[in-house]
Every structure is written in C-alpha cells, then in structure tokens.
Amino acid sequence: MTKSPSSSVQALYDLCKKTFAPSGTRPPSSLAINKLCSLLDTIAPADVGLDDGNKENDRGHGPLGIKLFNRVHRWAQPITYVDMHEGENFTMCMFCFPASSVIPLHDHPGMTVLSKVLYGSLHVKAYDWVEPANIQKSKGAGHATVRLAKLVVDEVLTAPCGTSVLYPKSGGNLHCFTAITPCAVLDILAPPYDEAAGRKCTYYRDYPCSSFPTGDGDQSMDDKPDYAWVAEINTPEDLYMRPGMYMGPPIQN
C-alpha cells in the first residue's frame, strides 16, 4: 500500500522519536539507522511540501513558492532553512539551495546526521579527523593552527539517491555542501546543536596536505591527496541564509 504524504513524514518523525535516546545518552544501533535510511529513501519533495525545484526561475521564486527578490542573480539568493521539528533529542529540517550556493565546511560534534537529497544535484566534500590528532602551527598569514583530516567523501549526489549518514567520529563529520543545480536536502541531526552542551557548529577552511609537514618527518604530502589540513575560521560573512516556512503535512508530536 502506498503511503500518503502525511503518513510518510509522520512516520519519519515517529521513527526518529523511537530511535534517538534522550540527550544522546546512547548511540542508535546500526539496525535502527538502517531503518531510518530506508524510510528516508522513500521521501519525495511532495511529502514535505516542496516542488521538485524546476519552478525556480529568473523571477526570483524559490521551490517553496516564496518571492525572494526581483530578478536577482542566482548567486545572490539565500539558502532557505526550513525547521520541521526541533526538540531535545533530534532536529528535522530542510535546506533549499539556489544553484552555486554553498554551506562551507563545518562540523557536527558528537552528532549523528542523516541527509537525503530531495531534488537536484549537490556536491558533498567531507572529512574525518585523523586520530591521534596531528596539529601544526601555520607559518602563513595569521599563524593559524591546522589539524590533519582524511577525505572520506568527494562526490555529487543527484536525486533520486540513497540517504547519507555521518557519525560523531566517522562518515565525514566535517562536510561542505555546494549546489550544482537548485536542490533541497532533508536533514536529521541527533542530538541537535546545543552550545551549552558543547555541540556548537564550527566552520573550517581546508588546505592541500602538501602545505605543511605532518610532523612525523615526512616533509611532502603530495602523494597523499586523501588528506588535508583544516583550520577553524569565523562564521563566513557571505553565508547567506534565511528562514522558510514548513509547508508540508503537519507533524504530530
């Protein structure tokens, strides 16, 4: 039996509620994550109140049908953040990207994140920290501190495609999103960002690994393209994001 749009998003919320323990006291099992992925894989734009993205055009309308600007350049349009549910144990939200827009490299400390591309094409670049930590002091401008990270994802995801998962210490906990076309992503973050609990979103810049020695006597990293040096930065001033209204079926808590 085919699920109605309302039952699909409600079923997703109900399964998240069962899966994620209060305050992240215990990590979800791989079986529980797989069940969530299987359900997320069935979610389509219409299930969460979105068009398929084809209606975004030069009149400045986004996929939510909201007027953005009058004939603005596509790269000047904001990324739209849609809050579906925000609770103590998990967040459900969507990001609607104009083409060429970017969410810079950032982390998800102590969090498990599931991401489903609903429409369009999105480039994902993601790293995990190398353990034990390899930290160096840059000799360049600002003398920034850099830490070694390993590249684990560098690909374009085009809907329809499977759900991606990152974990607190694996799967690409630091990632960057770049919209190849207008696209939308449904995210589940568990537990949510919470500065008081030490789960603050931090932004980073990555550098080619050949920029600095590793500290283990290897002065050249040209033969290790899967590694990079990563430096913490302030929140980018050109990160242009605005809130949008969730227009999908209501979610009963």
Rank of each mutant, 00 (worst) to 15 (best):
M1V: 07
S4C: 02
S7M: 06
S7L: 09
S7E: 15
V9S: 07
Y13V: 08
L15K: 11
L15E: 15
R26S: 15
R26L: 12
L31D: 14
N34V: 02
K35A: 14
S38Q: 15
D47K: 03
D51L: 11
G53Q: 06
K55Q: 08
H61F: 14
G62I: 03
K67Y: 11
L68P: 00
Q77A: 12
Y81C: 05
D83M: 07
D83V: 04
E86L: 11
G87K: 06
M94S: 10
C96V: 15
P98S: 02
S100Q: 12
D107A: 10
P109S: 07
G110F: 03
T112P: 02
T112H: 12
L114I: 03
S115M: 10
L118Q: 02
L118E: 11
G120R: 04
V124E: 13
K125E: 14
D128H: 04
A133L: 14
Q136E: 14
Q136A: 13
H143V: 00
T145S: 11
L157S: 03
V165W: 06
S170F: 01
S170H: 08
A179N: 08
V185P: 06
A197K: 15
K200I: 05
K200E: 15
K200Q: 14
Y207T: 00
C209T: 10
C209H: 09
S210K: 09
D216P: 01
D218G: 02
P225G: 04
P225T: 07
A228C: 13
V230T: 02
E232Y: 01
N234V: 04
Y240E: 04
P243Y: 03
P249W: 00
I251V: 15
